[in-house]
Design a protein around this nucleic acid. Structure first.
Lengths: 200, 200
DNA sequence: GAAAAAATAGTACGATCGTTCGTGTTTTTC
DNA sequence: GAAAAACACGAACGATCGTACTATTTTTTC
């Protein structure tokens, strides 16, 4: 999963560690990520793993960052290649829905939201920044769809962002708790109704 | 917080323990609930606390149950005193929104969803059962609003349930991550649009 | 109030936690 | 290839984890 042949040995193993850590934290959450488990997963000693990060918290921050990076690469980057307007906004949503399907075992960032939303500290701040960035991306894409006349002029882009977020959250949880296919259908129907309500 | 003067001493302290455990788990999650912390919170010895539950898992199940009970008492019970139809459905939603506002530090059941949605075991099953029950309550209330003619006959009550769930989730997270008041406004606007789209 | 039962405390266990430190090995630099 | 720097290991730390076992205290029953 390493994006490129890292320059130094240390950077390469650091990437490997984060890759494994991402896999573990996707299932167990960032709070459920222990250095012992991680060391075993990468086949190194605990102290060897630890040395790459000043502390467990720094490790968690790095893993959270990796989660945000992957989400961006999977969802945002492809969408940005689409033309501005409703097409791009729909690409973001579809990409997100696919992301939920692809990550059956859980989405790290979404878990992190629940874990740190009311626990102050660096991780809370990082999560807030991450979600905020994502939300503003969606808001911006919505604004473009308004500018292009594909959504009504009196549409509130932040409101749309909020509602898309909610639909994605419901999809995320229903996918794991109940039936993935039904959940996807319901999410898509909700999106259609959302756009229909704001179409000019 | 004890509902009634418990018959035996043991049952009374058990209630006390669960009350404190609920408070801790609301902030830290059920996985973040340790018997040591809990013992200190109730002013008992670790083993004294432990003896009331066969295992940590049983304790977690009991606390989860308490969370569901409180939610039901706060949201569902008052709503069931309202007349069937849209009034009751709106009461459920308003109650839930108030619940989110009231529990600033986090909702235990919502956290539990994230913690156990993809981790098999008794707690996963308990969470699924809990959410399922809640969803079917909402679906039933929606069906009544259809029957009374307040919502269109071709409305899918499960779809409505899904969307309400999503809006509540978004409200829940935005309340903690961003601005509670703005989140509440956005959630209410989303609900209005949802009903408007299905009004006859 | 004595006897039986229930509740709580105390202690100790093996495991695991994050972290530190000193030593050895591997990689990079010159 | 030698010197310097980076990397990894192993052992040990104090703390905390859930749990088991045995006393001791408190409550209930008669």
């Amino acid at each position: 999963m390493a994006s490129q042949p890292a320059s130094s040995k240390g950077a390469a193993t650091r990437e490997l560690i984060i890759d494994r850590a991402y896999a573990i934290a996707s299932r167990q959450g960032l709070e459920g990520l222990s250095i012992g488990d991680l060391a075993q997963a990468v086949g190194m000693s605990k102290s060897g793993v630890f040395a790459h990060f000043g502390s467990r918290e720094d490790l968690q921050l790095a893993v959270l960052d990796e989660g945000g990076r992957r989400f961006g690469e999977f969802v945002l980057v492809p969408a940005l290649r689409k033309p501005r307007g409703l097409v791009r906004l729909r690409a973001i949503i579809d990409g997100w829905f696919d992301w939920v399907r692809e990550n059956q075992h859980g989405c790290l960032v979404m878990s992190a939201i629940s874990e740190y939303d009311s626990r102050p500290g660096p991780l809370h701040d990082a999560v807030v920044a991450r979600v905020q960035r994502w939300r503003s991306d969606t808001t911006r894409a919505t604004q473009m769809a308004i500018d292009s006349g594909e959504l009504r002029a009196d549409t509130d882009p932040q409101q749309i962002s909020f509602e898309i977020f909610g639909i994605a959250l419901a999809l995320h949880h229903d996918t794991r708790l109940f039936d993935p296919k039904l959940a996807r259908t319901q999410a898509e129907r909700a999106i259609e109704r959302l756009f229909a309500a704001h179409s000019p």
